[in-house]
Design a protein around this nucleic acid. Structure first.
Lengths: 342, 342
DNA sequence: CTGTTAGCGCGTTCAT
DNA sequence: ATGAACGCGCTAACAG
């Protein structure tokens, strides 16, 4: 049989309210009684029923994370798990639990989160990614449920987001190559429909401008170029080809190294490389990849803190919104270690 | 204001019980009334309160997953996320939610899961991994809360586990190399204190015995050998050295390929390789790694099904226990594609 | 078939 | 400083 407050109360010879007060650290309780109650709770092995607590306090002290479908590229799983860890850690520190929700289709995802939210099982949602015209975001915005999106979205305004400054990251990556003596630097992108990809391209361009370096169109390779060896091959045969490359993400970096390997080019010998990392993958590569690292865990942790704050500050009039940026830093590894001997 | 059953009832001019009956698909309700109630629910946008439901039904319809601390090797994150996806999917299909719990120390982990369990927020727990003398397992066993462990543990008996047959997996990996014409086949292990590692080693040996092939002690390299180039180097210089290697996990495989690359050996040219995969990493490698793949997602899905079943069949006397095995299969990739021209 | 009643375990008034 | 009583939203037992 489960131990309830009632039983503790009877056993300790006090009323339920007193037990409740002791539990919630209420000040107006005689020290003596308080100790007695505590002792009784120990003896009986009492644990407060969280469900009942939620019911009466009208808050689940719980967030949900919307897991992107398996549609997302497999490699990003590393990114997602770190994110989840961060979210769980941040939430836990503030006394919140985290439940997962997912769905095979956008519609299912919507039903999953809205069910949890409307059912009162969770107080808010964390979105790990967004699509264009995202039905989930649309619902959350209109329904007024607290939520936070990890990553920037140009499309939606007036929502809560936690992001890394992709543009600055790519800019730093490019500057690093420049500082290593490179003057012809290319860029290889990820899917151009992603906001992050555009931001990174912008940062790359900015760094080149900053140093008055050329930014040749031929040096910008689209995502997927590495998938057909031909593209990489002709790139490497360009007259005055780049001596270094900024890659928009880890997957692309892996692809490039792989293609280059098959064409018998070496990294960084024939081409230096820096990745704008979105996963802890760079260390696994051969050669290991220099990258701009984001504290992914911190991204998640920030997200949960921000969300919880917005949950606890009842929307005073308007829904909470804002953009939170978490920092990044360059980590030099093998793929860019050789400077040019100019 | 939230829409409760009471309001729906009032609005539809019926009693609360009727609404409840309609909701739970109770048979004894006049068709006409039923429709009216449904319509009213629609109009008012009623959503049942899951918390209240849980409180009265004394079941949260919820599992928790214990996330291993970051102590676990980073690469295994891929494994864990797939696992989590599988668990969430399996649970979702049966109407269960999934909450995450974690802790920096073993003690914290214990507090996290026991809090959720005793607090009634979850009905059971899924352990993604186990240590030796695991305090969490000890607690769960003694407290009688339903739980399932993913992975085999020799230490604990009479508990519910879902596993892959590591021994058979390694055996299949070895057989594959034999079928490619290799006769001198080595083995490189993961940490020997892991049950899985021992099982795999056993499977490797069995395959060799099966074909009457030699199993030279020098051909068995310990985990970590690839970390110092020296060990790999002397291995490759062995007289009559192996022409192929079975690797106990993906991390080791990556390490081997990396070391070999630095020593100017090629895979599979100089050494063929098959990994007993524990993550979807093999495709990322250059060259891609042949591996024995486990349906990780299926592992998780099975775990949740099994656990939920044990939750719903109230322990008739003894706690539920049992071992469930999920299958594996060989996927041939580049690292073993060259047979020997014997 | 339907309505009334009584809790689930807890917080929070109100009195005292 | 303490206790009694009510209600959170829902299900289940009992009447009619």
């Amino acid at each position: 049989m489960t131990v309830t407050m009632k039983k503790v109360a009877r056993r300790a010879g006090v009323s339920v309210s007193t037990v409740s007060r002791v539990l919630s650290g209420h000040p107006h309780v005689r020290e003596e009684l308080s100790r007695k109650v505590r002792r009784t709770m120990e003896e009986l092995g009492y644990t407060p029923n969280l469900i009942a607590k939620s019911l009466v306090s009208r808050s689940a002290r719980c967030l949900c994370i919307l897991l992107p479908g398996p549609a997302a590229q497999m490699f990003s799983n590393l990114y997602f798990l770190e994110l989840i860890r961060g979210i769980a850690a941040g939430a836990g520190r503030l006394g919140f639990d985290v439940v997962l929700s997912s769905g095979a289709t956008e519609q299912e995802e919507l039903e999953a989160v809205s069910g949890l939210l409307k059912g009162g099982r969770v107080d808010g949602a964390v979105l790990l990614s967004s699509r264009t015209d995202d039905a989930v975001i649309a619902y959350l915005k209109s329904s007024g449920h607290p939520f936070v999106l990890i990553g920037r979205s140009e499309q939606y305004d007036g929502i809560l987001t936690v992001e890394t400054n992709q543009s600055a990251a790519a800019c730093d990556a490019t500057r690093h190559l420049i500082s290593m003596g490179h003057e012809r630097i290319g860029f290889i992108g990820s899917p151009p429909d992603s906001t992050a990809a555009r931001d990174r391209l912008e940062g790359y361009r900015r760094a080149l401008r900053e140093y008055g370096l050329e930014c040749h169109p031929d040096w910008m390779i689209g995502d997927g170029a590495w998938k057909d060896g031909g593209a990489m091959s002709s790139f490497m045969k360009l007259p005055d080809r780049p001596t270094a490359l900024v890659a928009a993400d880890d997957m692309v970096s892996f692809g490039v190294i792989r293609s280059l390997g098959q064409l018998n080019y070496g990294v960084p010998g024939d081409l230096a490389l820096v990745s704008c990392s979105n996963a802890p993958l760079p260390v696994l590569s051969v050669p290991s990849i220099s990258s701009i690292d984001t504290g992914i865990g911190q991204l998640g942790e920030t997200a949960s803190r921000v969300l919880i704050r917005s949950i606890q500050q009842p929307h005073q009039g308007k829904p909470v919104s804002g953009r939170f940026i978490v920092g990044h830093r360059l980590i030099v590894r093998e793929s860019s270690r050789l400077g040019l001997s100019v």
